[in-house]
């Protein structure tokens, strides 16, 4: 009896104060049949990576509005590499300018969703990229 379910960590790094966007995404993923680990506000890259490993998630979804992405995301990717966990897919959403998107994709962030993205696109992206054994 096999019963594979995609697991996603929805995390909010940085100091910005609300998580409406992250919660909308979390609910949409749940409704698409995924297990969403939700950790709340103000997560450090260390906390996010450690949580992702303990929870053995397929995907990390980062939500950020504060503008600190060029500082926090490379740090997170470096930690993931150190922990030999680069098989975890990292995606991000939030206010991120075009030139930064190019840079972030170079360091291994697989996809970046700008504000107002249809949640169905995020769901499709995850389903296309996660290879779940059935």
């Amino acid at each position: 009896m096999k019963n594979s379910i995609i697991r996603v960590l929805v995390a909010k790094p940085g100091l910005d104060g609300h998580d409406r966007g992250a919660k909308v995404v979390a609910r949409a993923l749940r409704d698409a049949g995924m297990e969403v680990i939700y950790t709340g506000l103000r997560q450090t890259p260390e906390q996010i990576v450690e949580t992702a490993i303990q929870e053995d998630v397929n995907v990390i979804g980062l939500s950020i509005l504060s503008g600190a992405h060029m500082h926090l995301f490379p740090k997170l990717m470096k930690l993931l590499k150190e922990r030999e966990a680069i098989d975890i897919i990292v995606m991000a959403g939030g206010i991120i300018p075009g030139e930064d998107i190019v840079e972030l994709k170079k360091i291994g962030i697989k996809e970046i969703f700008t504000p107002g993205t249809d949640t169905n696109r995020i769901i499709e992206f995850i389903k296309e990229n996660v290879k779940v054994v059935r």
Partner: peptide, 23 residues
Amino acid sequence: TGGAILGDRIRMQDLSTDKDVFI
């Protein structure tokens, strides 16, 4: 749907980087 939002870690944030705690 079989999906779930697992949110208990919100109350356990500072435990996540303690290497002797596994959640």
